[in-house]
Simulated assay, not measured.
Amino acid sequence: MANVTAEQAATIKEIVCEILELEEDEVTGESLFREDHGADSLRAIEILASLEKEFKVTIDQAELSRMVNLNGVYEVLAESAGW
């Protein structure tokens, strides 16, 4: 996992699960948002915006292509936040 603390990872997962309307035990680091959980592109943008607000960072929308699962979100967010 990227340089994300356990606390940050828990917050990220909570945000993602809330937006995808899933229980936390349904989402793993590798489970794909679109293929495994039926998320559409609007949900992906909502995840990006929520993470930007929560962590006070700016994430380039081009990074959405990497944010297909929790591990991808951790990596993009860590890079954007400079963790």
Rank of each mutant, 00 (worst) to 15 (best):
S65I: 14
N71G: 01
R34Q: 01
V27F: 03
K13A: 07
V16W: 11
V73C: 05
L70K: 08
V16K: 02
S80I: 07
E18M: 13
D40H: 14
A44M: 14
L32H: 01
E24M: 05
Q61W: 11
V27E: 00
E30Y: 02
C17M: 02
V73F: 10
V76D: 01
H37D: 01
E54V: 04
D36K: 13
A9V: 08
I47Y: 08
E26K: 15
E54D: 05
G38T: 09
I15N: 06
R66D: 03
Y74F: 14
W83Y: 15
A62T: 06
R66N: 06
E46M: 14
T5Q: 09
A49S: 05
L20A: 00
E14P: 06
H37V: 00
G72I: 06
G72D: 09
D36G: 09
G38W: 14
A81P: 05
F33R: 05
V27T: 00
G72C: 06
Q61C: 06
N71T: 01
I45R: 12
L42P: 03
T11Y: 14
V57L: 13
E26N: 14
V4N: 03
V76F: 03
E23H: 07
H37C: 01
K13W: 12
C17I: 00
E63W: 12
D60E: 04
T58N: 14
W83S: 15
V27M: 04
E18T: 11
I19C: 01
M67N: 05
G72W: 09
E46D: 12
E54R: 15
S80L: 08
G72R: 10
I12L: 10
Q8E: 15
S65G: 10
G29V: 02
E52C: 10
M1P: 10
V27A: 01
V4W: 05
E7T: 14
T58M: 09
L70I: 12
R34Y: 08
F33T: 03
E23Q: 10
A62N: 13
E14H: 13
